[in-house]
Nucleic acid binder design. Structure first.
Length: 759
DNA sequence: GGTTAGAGTATCTTC
DNA sequence: TACTCTAACC
């Protein structure tokens, strides 16, 4: 019996059709929760089992590593197969992989590093400075954005020459040119480059293109609504004349327009590929009818969409619980209290998510959970691998792997402080550049470095670390040993240990975390079989590790740090995250918070209809994450950027019929005729029928007194090295307490509670 | 060259 | 509010 015959019952008719239609272009419009991953994985299994298609002939692309991993796992399970599936991968990983192997053909060295957003920004600023373009006249972020736009159109700076429309473009173009050259010099690629250079590679090398086109006979793309122009172009390069391409997506869930995603890609697919088979998956297996009804009412107001209606055979379910409360603190308290109720009623915390439009809203919920000792985890916000201490440590590894990496060089050279400042650094950079030598090698080899004053000893120390590192790379020692040794030789950990501040102990913890990540990585590491090279295993290990780290996204590290109750590990936790991060996930109980005009929908979308449609889609995504119970909350007053704003109730709430809701309104203000909105940082309050009037709110929050802390605000305390002081602020840090203390001698400092005693 | 305090400013989402 | 940048001081 064929695979598909024996699995027939797993699929509904539409899904089956999508699986069986293996030849030619196929567009699967898969509504939220309609089983699209199932379609993709079964399709792959069907191709392999029933059509004898070898796995490397299938190229399946996703956006997140998490989605790729999930698809890999499910395919492996269906096929009873146990090896890595390299071509079920993210767009960026596919690019990186091809470039490591074939990049030399277009001048991309195989040891390139990937620069993150921050490094790109520094690079842009450096280029602007070198070109004497003031960052006051031209905002580096705007320049960056313009360059990104060109890249997303598939254009190098040469190709962008004729797309200049304004003086601003001229400026950006000169920066783009300088930026390209600097990146080349540093042997670095940014995120866009991973796609752009791959695109150029395929355009430049017909032979190579033909080879891969012959290999990849079946293309699959997940979340097609989120592809940008460049990804689309790249896909077209990959696609051979058979046009066996199956794209799966939901135009209603396109929420990355701001990042260049073109919803037209999915809206026009059946026009570009006239023979395309369009299959709609409309049965939802996730949510109750009530939740789907709300989602449908929100999304059906959009004009730019494929018409479709989700249905479910699940019952009505519970009503949506809507709470309009006085302020953000009440909102947090309401949400957390309800979480406690749900948990008491038997819902696992793992099945509960709190969603918000902006990451900054996580704070209140975080504090409330800390207070009530509820385990939680936060996805997004600060990423682990973007923390200073992690980047510091990684910079040493990066410079070893790629001695041209300027950013890593600068960072590692003087962290911890070795007395090497800006002037010395500049001299070294200029000299290395003149010698056309990778900067780290230059430092290592140069007999007489440019005149360095006080930095002499520090530089010698740095050279010793480099020597040690390069030696390690050539040898066969373990990855962990190498890093430990560098940490020791650089005094990095020692210095942190001496600091004894809450910040330093958190940093130490994070480095610890990094070490275990490295160890874990090392233990499970397998050399990629198709990329043979003469490098030592350690070097390849290092390269793989750094690449993985660079391509990690928020959702990918679901089990990473930033948990509230640090020590008691592996407790079931409630999840907090932005709606963007929640895409593709589902939870039994969801809280959709901050439903206020100006927040959700965001104030930025007010004057742009297309953006407003995207907000609407975002709301649709949020609602459809819930399986059984949906809460929606809104605060009348909210503190944003230090000032208090009053916002109207979100239109997404107002548009929904009351009968879907069970409503809680807990304040008198709701009755009054004063309503307000905030725009541009100041607060306006309008009275009904009267003129607009600007009002600054003075609103003092109750100081928290309900903690069972050992210390209280205003208490006099003694610290072993800072002496006497007065407690000004108390925060919870993991299972510990962090105090802000005004010391008589030492000034204001943050210290861990365990270091101080009552005076 | 390193440190720090104060001013200024950005205010979303992220592969 | 919280971060980044600058300028003044050590």
């Amino acid at each position: 019996m064929s695979f598909i015959e024996s699995h027939r019952d797993d699929l509904n008719d539409r899904q089956l059709e999508a699986v069986l239609r293996t030849e030619g272009p196929v567009l699967v419009l898969a509504g939220a929760g309609s089983g699209k991953t199932r379609v993709l994985t079964y399709r792959i299994a069907h191709l392999v089992n029933d059509h004898g298609v070898p796995l490397p002939s299938i190229l399946a692309m996703t956006f997140s590593n998490k989605a790729a991993r999930e698809m890999q796992e499910r395919v492996k399970a269906l096929l009873n197969f146990d090896q890595a599936l390299p071509w079920i991968s993210t767009f960026h990983s596919v690019g990186a992989r091809l470039l490591r192997r074939y990049g030399q053909k277009i001048g991309v060295g195989s040891e390139f590093v990937i620069y993150d957003e921050g490094e790109q920004r520094t690079m842009i600023k450096d280029c602007m400075e070198a070109l004497k373009i003031s960052d006051k006249d031209y905002n580096p972020d705007a320049v960056h954005a313009r360059i990104g736009k060109w890249k997303n159109e598939g254009k190098s700076y040469e190709e962008a020459q004729n797309s200049r429309a304004a003086i601003f473009d001229d400026v950006c173009l000169s920066v783009y040119e300088a930026y390209t050259k600097e990146m080349q010099k540093a042997q670095a690629l940014d995120f866009d480059d991973l796609l752009l250079k791959t695109y150029h590679l395929f355009r430049a090398d017909e032979e190579l293109k033909a080879e891969f086109r012959a290999q990849w006979r079946y293309l699959l793309v997940d979340e097609f609504q989120d592809t940008n122009e460049l990804q689309y172009k790249l896909l077209m390069e990959f696609l051979n004349a058979d046009h066996n391409i199956c794209v799966v997506g939901d135009d209603d869930q396109s929420i990355y327009g701001w990042r260049g995603a073109k919803i037209e890609n999915i809206l026009n697919f059946d026009k570009v590929f006239k023979k395309a088979e369009v299959i709609k998956l409309e049965q939802n297996y996730r949510s109750t009818a009530t939740i789907l009804k709300a989602a449908d009412l929100v999304i059906s107001k959009n004009e730019m969409r494929h018409e479709k209606t989700l249905w479910t055979d699940k019952g009505q379910g519970e009503k949506i619980r809507y709470a309009s409360v006085t302020d953000d603190r009440s909102e947090s308290s309401f949400v957390v209290t309800e979480i406690q109720k749900q948990v008491r009623a038997g819902v696992s915390p793992e099945e509960i998510a709190v969603l918000y439009r902006v990451n900054s809203l996580s704070r209140g919920f975080e504090e409330e959970c800390l207070k009530k000792r509820i385990p939680y985890r936060i996805i997004g916000g600060f990423r682990f691998y973007e923390r200073k201490e992690i980047k510091d440590v990684l910079s040493y590894l990066k410079i070893l792997l790629n001695p041209s990496d300027v950013m890593a060089f600068r960072r590692s050279l003087n962290t911890p402080s070795r007395g090497i400042g800006k002037t010395t650094l500049e001299k070294i950079e200029v000299a290395a550049s003149a010698m056309q030598r990778p900067i780290a090698l230059f430092v290592l080899e140069a007999a007489n470095l440019p005149a360095v004053g006080r930095g002499r000893e520090g530089l010698a120390q740095y050279r010793r670390i480099l020597e040690r590192g390069f030696m390690g790379l050539r040898s066969n020692e373990s990855f962990v040993d190498l890093v430990m040794d560098i940490l020791e030789k650089s005094n990095y950990v020692t210095n942190l240990k001496n600091e004894k501040t809450p910040e330093s102990s958190e940093r130490l913890e994070n480095i610890q975390e990094l070490m275990s990540a490295i160890q874990e990585f090392e233990e499970s590491w397998q050399p990629a079989s198709d990329l043979q090279s003469g490098d030592s295993p350690l070097k390849r290990k290092l390269a793989d590790f750094l690449e993985r780290v660079s391509l990690i996204a928020d959702v990918d590290q679901l089990d990473s740090k930033r948990t509230g109750v640090a020590q008691e590990s592996r407790q079931p936790q409630v999840t907090f995250m932005s709606i963007h991060a929640a895409k593709g996930l589902e939870f039994k109980v969801c809280f959709l918070t901050g439903l206020e005009e100006g927040i959700f929908p965001s104030a930025r979308s007010f004057d742009d209809y297309a953006q407003l449609e995207e907000e609407r889609r975002l709301c649709y995504v949020a609602i459809t994450r819930a399986k059984e119970k949906l809460y929606m909350t809104r605060a009348l007053r909210r503190r944003t950027f230090g000032s208090i704003n009053m916002n109207l109730e979100s239109r997404f709430v107002r548009e929904l019929p009351k009968e879907l809701f069970e409503i809680t309104i807990d304040q008198a203000e709701e009755q009054s005729d004063i309503y307000g909105y905030s725009y541009g940082g100041s607060t306006f309050v309008r009275s009904k029928g009267s003129q607009k009037e600007a009002v600054e709110f003075e609103y003092e929050f109750d100081q928290r007194t309900d903690f069972d802390f050992n210390f209280s605000k205003g208490e006099r305390v003694v610290h072993p090295s800072f002496g006497e002081g007065v407690v000004q602020k108390i925060e919870v840090l993991g299972s510990d307490e962090c105090l802000t203390i005004q010391f008589q001698r030492a000034g204001r400092k943050k210290v861990l509670a365990k270091f101080v005693k009552s005076a």
